[in-house]
Amino acid sequence: MAEQVALSRTQVCGILREELFQGDAFHQSDTHIFIIMGASGDLAKKKIYPTIWWLFRDGLLPENTFIVGYARSRLTVADIRKQSEPFFKATPEEKLKLEDFFARNSYVAGQYDDAASYQRLNSHMNALHLGSQANRLFYLALPPTVYEAVTKNIHESCMSQIGWNRIIVEKPFGRDLQSSDRLSNHISSLFREDQIYRIDHYLGKEMVQNLMVLRFANRIFGPIWNRDNIACVILTFKEPFGTEGRGGYFDEFGIIRDVMQNHLLQMLCLVAMEKPASTNSDDVRDEKVKVLKCISEVQANNVVLGQYVGNPDGEGEATKGYLDDPTVPRGSTTATFAAVVLYVENERWDGVPFILRCGKALNERKAEVRLQFHDVAGDIFHQQCKRNELVIRVQPNEAVYTKMMTKKPGMFFNPEESELDLTYGNRYKNVKLPDAYERLILDVFCGSQMHFVRSDELREAWRIFTPLLHQIELEKPKPIPYIYGSRGPTEADELMKRVGFQYEGTYKWVNP
């Protein structure tokens, strides 16, 4: 592979701008107003304001973009700056750019259920340069409990009458099928589907988006991507930290609602779906819905739930269990780990287990898709061969690698495990991989909904998990304890083995 010439960040961002501006969906010269509902909250200060700053800094926003914060707290732009700027990672050389960014910011205080507050917000936006005809993007960085009041008031008082209007809704989209349907029906009564952007930030990850290209742009994968060759698929999300004093919020939802029903299920769809007619948003989402419709409700015998306990040999936070978090209700049975087996009941995947695993306070930070292939028929190497695996590593250190057998150097035919490896950090030294939120917010500006969740996708996802969630809430089974920093409950490994996964433990990928 030829040595790549190092590029400056300015040059890299210039390439990104060229890609972005050559499309006809990006209205570079139009006025846009980006409204952050819930501007005083954690999500706004840690993710949304920093993301908008990065896009502005790199010249990736339309030229005439204004940012308006809205929340109940009586704040000023200076207050917003004070709480969000520490997350910007701005350099001293960017000081003038930073001043320009905050000059485009404003803030309006108001209630979430008060019509007069929204009329005041609308008047404020109209007073901005060309504000009355601007395109408006409303980001709901809010708890779902206020979605209905907020969307109703936005629709009645704050819509642009000339430009387009788009609304970005953060997960969780309800707690179960019934609450999700209620919320979807409410929002759909106010906005068209092409105006609604239900954001799952995992769909903005580079390697998640790469799944489609790997599958449908490489001839070698087509013939082997089926039940005849693939023994099982494992989708993993692991965090090495616990709730760390923020367990009160987590306890309301648990690990299945927080990660599995959305992030992991979306990745499953991209692995299992048929080739779409095109890369058009609805063509892709149509195929994802077909996959979900082929999955039956989760069966309790295919589920393992766990909850982390303190590690007596650990240090600091590792010595504390979930129930030691003062914000967690006493005696909570909320799971911090889950392993679930699903089956896609169609011709391509009949009988292939899709194993979804996620948890907190585990032994490493990792998100990946792992396809394990069947054993080689007619073994001539005296059971020395391990199964081939194709691994798409989402985070950290984005990579695609194939675990395969090669001859060990020497005189004899002794096979050993090795890999074919594409590590993004080595291959793409001159490429700026956008943060997931950067990519998705740019998608909203461009009107691309491919990486957002459609209402029928959402409904099918909740259909699969709601009976299990209701059973857990009714019966309150005690989750299996696992030690902070471990791989999780051993019962999860036993479940995976029972459905056909072979864990060798003899080879570990190392970032080159």
Rank of each mutant, 00 (worst) to 15 (best):
S40R: 00
A2E: 10
T31L: 07
E239G: 04
N226F: 06
A6P: 15
Q111M: 11
S117D: 14
L214V: 12
Q83P: 05
S179G: 08
N229V: 07
V68I: 13
R246P: 02
M212N: 02
E148I: 10
I220L: 14
W164Q: 07
N210I: 00
K45R: 14
F21Q: 09
R198T: 01
P144D: 02
L235D: 00
S8K: 15
I36H: 01
G254W: 00
H155V: 07
A127D: 15
F221I: 08
L142M: 04
S189Y: 10
T51Q: 11
F250Y: 14
L75R: 09
H155T: 08
R9E: 15
L20A: 15
D194A: 11
R219Y: 06
A149R: 14
F237W: 10
R182W: 09
F138G: 02
I220H: 04
G204H: 01
W54I: 10
Y118F: 14
H124S: 12
F56R: 02
E148H: 10
N64L: 06
W164A: 06
R136K: 09
W225C: 02
S117R: 13
N122D: 12
F87V: 06
A115H: 15
G204D: 03
G163Q: 09
N185L: 11
E170W: 04
L61D: 00
D24N: 13
L142S: 00
E99Y: 07
R120D: 14
E63G: 12
K238D: 04
F253K: 01
G110A: 08
L142R: 03
D114K: 13
H124C: 12
Y70H: 09
Y70T: 11
Q28S: 13
L43A: 01
V169F: 07
N105P: 04
I230P: 03
A6I: 15
W53N: 02
A44H: 05
L211S: 00
A115S: 12
V213K: 05
D100W: 08
R57L: 07
H201N: 03
L130Q: 15
E63N: 10
H201V: 03
I48N: 00
Q11A: 15
T236L: 05
A25Q: 15
F34V: 10
I36K: 04
K47I: 03
P50E: 00
L75H: 13
R74Y: 14
N165M: 11
A78T: 15
Y107F: 13
V150T: 10
Y107C: 08
F102V: 05
E156M: 12
G242H: 02
N229M: 06
F241G: 06
P50A: 09
M125A: 11
L121D: 03
L140Q: 06
W53M: 00
R120S: 13
D200W: 03
P172W: 03
L7T: 15
Q119P: 12
F138L: 05
L96K: 06
H155L: 06
N135E: 07
R57K: 13
M212D: 02
E156I: 15
A127T: 14
L177W: 06
R215A: 02
R192K: 13
N210L: 04
K171S: 01
Y202V: 01
I234M: 14
R182Y: 12
D30I: 11
L190S: 08
V150M: 06
N153Y: 14
P172E: 06
H124L: 08
K205Y: 06
A115P: 08
L75D: 06
A141S: 08
W164T: 10
D113G: 09
L214F: 14
C158N: 12
L142D: 02
A217C: 10
W225Q: 03
P172A: 02
E244S: 13
K97A: 09
N185M: 11
V146W: 03
F26A: 09
R120Y: 15
R198H: 03
M207V: 06
V208K: 03
S29H: 12
L121F: 08
N185I: 09
I33S: 06
I234Q: 15
K205C: 02
K47V: 01
E19F: 15
F88C: 14
T10Q: 15
M125Y: 04
K171W: 04
L137N: 05
S123G: 15
H124M: 09
